[in-house]
Design a protein around this nucleic acid. Sequence first.
DNA 1: TCTGGGGTCCTAGGACCC
DNA 2: TCTGGGGTCCTAGGACCC
Length: 419
Amino acid sequence: MFALIDCNNFYASCERVFRPDLNGKPIVVLSNNDGCVIARSNEAKAIGIPMGAPAFELEQKFKQYNVQVFSANFPLYGDMSNRVMNILADYSPEMEVYSIDEAFLKLTGFDFFNLQEYGKAIHNKVTKWTGIPISIGIAPTKALAKLANRIAKKFPQKTNSVYIIDNEEKKIKALKWLKVEDVWGIGRQHSKRLQAQQVFTAYDFIQLSDSWIKRNMSVVGLRLKQDLQGIPTLDLEEIQNKKSIATTRTFETNYTKFEQLKERIVTFASSCAEKLRAQKSCCNSLMVFIRTNGHRQDLSQYSKNIVIKLPYPTNSNIELAKFAIQALKQIFKEGYHYKKAGVIVQDFTSEEILQTTLFEKRNEQHIPLMKALDKINQHFGQQKIRLASQDQKRIWKMKQEKLSLQYTTKLSDIIIINV
DNA sequence: TCTGGGGTCCTAGGACCC
DNA sequence: TCTGGGGTCCTAGGACCC
C-alpha cells in the first residue's frame, strides 16, 4: 500500500500556526511581488477567492470579508515543511517527498497493521508537533492514494482526515466520484479532449481502450490508467539531483535599460551557481530570457530566449555571470519595457569531472574562491558577498508588504511570550 | 498602476551515422 | 512501376505537477 500525506492549505496553515488568533478566519498568501493568490484557507475558498487570481482585482473582496493577506514567506514554509517531513520519515523506511507539502510513504510489510489507526497516529503526531493540519490517503497504488487523500480532505468529519481504499467496492465508488479533470496527471488540455469523448469521471477514463489513451495521451496516460485500476505502475521515485535549475523574476516596475537588466541577470546567474554548488553539479549550458509585460496591450511586446553552450562545465558565479551577460547582449533590444527575466542552467555534469577543452580552460582558482564565498554567506547571511556587477545599494526590491516573521529560522524573529 | 516561480517527462521530427 | 534499412542523438514544444 501507498500512503499520501498532504498538508491542507499549506502556506496559509503555516501562517496560522504562529497566529492562532486567525483560526476560522479567511487567509490568503500571495506570490512574489504580492502578485497572485497562491494559497487560501478554507474560509477564503468559501467566499470564492480563486487560485491564481491577481491580488489587485481582489482588493474589494479582501476588505469586505476582512481577509488576512500575507506575502509569501518561503523561509518559513521551507522550514515547516522540513519539520513535517522529518516526522513522516519515522513512519516508513521508504518515503518520497513529492513536493513542499506532500509525501508518499510506501507501506510494504504492513499487512497486519490496522492502517486506519496507523494513519490516525501519523495525523495526531503531525498536528501535535507542528500545528499543521494534514490529510492522509492510503491505497494500493499512488494514483489511488492521491484519490483517497482527496476524499479525506473533502470529508474531514466523516473520515477523520484518513481514508483508505482497500477493496473493490470502495475503489469503484471513489473512481465514480472523482471528476476526470481532478485526476492526478490529467490537466486542462486532456480533460477537454476527454469530456468531448463523454468521459466525465475517473471511472469513465479507465473504461477507455489502451490504444485510444496511448494515441492521445502517450504512455503517461496509459500508466495512469493502470495505476487507477489498482495495478501498481508508478513507484516511489528516488530523490536525485535536479536536471535543470532556474532563477527567474517578474520585476516590480518595467526596465528599459541594458544596465538594469544586466544587474538582474548577473544576480540570477549567481543564484543558479549557488544552487548548482549545493548539489555538487556543474552546468554545460545556460539559457537567458527576457520579456515584456504580456498583459499590457498598450506596449509593444518582445520575448526572447537564448541558449549558450558553455566551453567547459562550471558552477562559478563569476563564469556563469560572464556567460549570462554575453547571452543577454545577444537578445537585448532597445526600446522595450522589460517586465520579467531569468536564467536557467541545464545539462549538468558532476563537479568532480574536470573535462576541459584544448583552447579554453576554466579558472581553477574559482573553486576555492566559491567555497569561501559559500561559507561566508552561509554564516553571515545570503548575498553578504556578491559580485561587483550585482546590485550594491539594494535598488531592486520585491514588493512584500505583508510579510510575516521568520519565526523558526531567524533568531530575532522568535516569538516572545510575556507571562 | 498592479498579473509567481520552479520543476518533470514524453514525442515528433530533423540531422546524422553506417 | 520501381528509389534500403536500421539506428542514435538532439531539440523544441507540449503536456503535466506543486
